[in-house]
């Protein structure tokens, strides 16, 4: 079991024949992911990586019954690509593209409001259910099937956490990279709820950053609703106020979105907050061995 994607997910790639799309579609196929085709307007009817190319997402959905899309379209056209996927009935839309203007994302958010789909990202590494489906740009080999759900705003820092979890002898149910932009489709709290409802996730790791209130929103929900142990880390304890640290979302604005403020609230809500990024995996292992002795993790 897992959340969002599994071995039955049928995935299409928007921006399929571009260099990014090609490279990562190939990596996803090698991982065993069911990539059923892709979209490049004007190239419909041809084959790419032995998979059919379509002109529109709607054509692709009709022909392949795809339910998941991954987007590698350049920033200027990415908002449109997300809306096209939603319009065609795609259930899970993973937007990898970095650098989409905020104004475009405000429109996307509005467009998706009453649609039955979930957007992951943009500006994210994607999602992976180890051993079943990799819908993203993460290195597949560091993951191992297991019971820890990981949600993160970062890319390589997520890989770090995954690697530590694997080395601690645990595995991951699903890892969700939600992205670092100011407007994203799925929040930390949304991911936490998915993991809380997933019978095969026994523990969660939240990797957050300075800026915004997503981690504290999740923490407050966890305090009264979550039945599973949660480990948390917030990057940016040493970040100076008001500077843009790579991710557009990671700007310290008010008093409550500093790393220290977030860590304090998360701790008060019962999350096991670690102050070093080097001990995320160990912390999860220790907690599970104390709280969940004997369930085979």
């Amino acid at each position: 079991m897992s959340v969002l994607v599994n071995k039955n997910s049928r995935i299409i790639v928007q921006g399929f024949t571009g260099s990014e799309g090609t490279f990562h579609a190939q990596q996803m196929l090698e991982y065993g992911t069911q990539v059923v085709g892709g979209i490049t307007p004007g190239k419909g009817g041809s084959l790419h990586l032995n998979k059919p190319v379509f002109n529109t997402v709607s054509d692709a959905v009709k022909a392949t019954s795809a339910d998941v899309s991954i987007i590698f379209v350049p920033p200027a056209f990415a908002a449109d690509a997300i809306m096209e996927a939603a319009d065609a009935g795609i259930k899970v839309i993973v937007a990898i593209t970095e650098g989409i203007p905020t104004r475009d994302m405000i429109e996307v958010k509005e467009f998706l409001k009453n649609k039955k789909c979930r957007l992951i990202g943009p500006n994210c590494p994607g999602i992976i259910t180890p051993g079943e489906a990799k819908v993203g740009i993460m290195p597949g080999f560091i993951h191992t099937p297991g019971n820890i759900g990981i949600v993160s705003r970062s890319g390589t820092l997520t890989y770090e956490a995954v690697d530590q979890v694997t080395k601690a002898g645990l595995g991951q149910s699903t890892c969700i990279g939600i992205g670092g932009d100011p407007i994203i489709g799925t929040t930390t709290l949304d991911a936490v709820k998915l993991f809380n409802d997933d019978p095969d996730t026994v523990g969660m790791i939240i990797i957050g950053e300075i800026g915004g209130s997503m981690e504290t929103d999740a923490a407050r929900w966890i305090k009264s609703n979550c039945t599973k142990p949660v480990v948390g880390f917030i990057a940016g304890q040493t970040a100076p106020k008001g500077r843009r640290m790579g991710h557009a979302g990671a700007i310290i604005g008010g008093a409550d979105d500093t790393a220290a403020a977030k860590m304090k609230i998360m701790t008060e809500c019962g999350i096991h907050v670690v102050d070093s990024p080097a001990v995320i995996g160990e912390a999860m292992k220790t907690i599970l061995s104390k709280e969940y002795r004997g369930i085979g993790v």
């Binding site: 390589t156 670092g180 300075i210 990057a235 940016g236 040493t238 790579g246 070093s276 990024p277």
Partner: peptide, 17 residues
């Protein structure tokens, strides 16, 4: 010198620790 903004911030935190 780090690849990725999140890991870069985490590395800075670690230097402090």
């Amino acid at each position: 010198m780090v690849n990725g903004a999140g890991l870069a911030m985490a590395t800075m935190d670690m230097i402090k620790l």
